[in-house]
Amino acid sequence: MDRLAVTHQAVKQLLESGEVEGVLALRASGPSTILHLYRKGDDLSDLALWPKYNAPKIMDLLQRSAPDARLGMVVRGCEERGLIELAKHNQVALDHLRLIGVACTAEERDACRCAWPYPTQIDAGERVEGIADALVAEHDKLSLEERGEFWKQHFARCIKCYACRTVCPQCFCEVCMLEDSLWVHTGTMTPPFPTYHLIRAYHTVAKCVGCMECEAACPADIPLPVLYALLRRDAEEMFGYVPGRSVDELPPLVVETLPQGG
């Protein structure tokens, strides 16, 4: 049975068992997909797996409006890691959730330049190994000056649409620093100094799981995940922390301050 058929079967079984009230999954919509909360008895024939969506964020919103709902969700690797990271920050409750794990195909992995294209438990699909992001390797070869030039050129195209912030599953602050005129002037184009991007990049540290949604959302094609991947690597070297790897690993930037803060 192919991946879609197996997923279809798993969603159907989960709904019919009565264990969950709904399952969040992708649904074919024109040439693309959209997330849909499938309920018992729904027609599952339009269930889809690709292109992906920022599903953890939608689950976060769903649980906010229905905190007690028992839900299921079809997740790929990045989505599961996103949920785990959100759970650590008290944004989603994993104990209410039943996950159906889907491994990404080699094509999907290549499209996302993904280092980790599978969830912890694979219910559908075959595991393919991750690849190193070639753009990150290229960036590593640049000197400090060249890096400055590289990002200056990319950031100069930014129209400050806030899409990267809005689409990001890990951006859940109720008050966003990027909307505070003390830090970022709103209503002006192309920031002369990339305050917006530096703040955003810093705020992804130990949270960003590399889901690539910001890159997909960016109308200016700024390779934001490259910067976030570099920071992820630095944080792993410094703290041994990999975002989304395990619910039991506490985020380093939080853990470090607790014992002294009292």
């Binding site: 060249e146 890096r147 990002w151 530096l198 990049a201 810093y202 910067l227 410094m238």
Partner: peptide, 12 residues
């Protein structure tokens, strides 16, 4: 970590 960010975006 902030120093690492500066290094990656090409700021001394």
């Amino acid at each position: 970590m902030f120093r690492s960010l500066l290094k990656q975006v090409g700021i001394n």
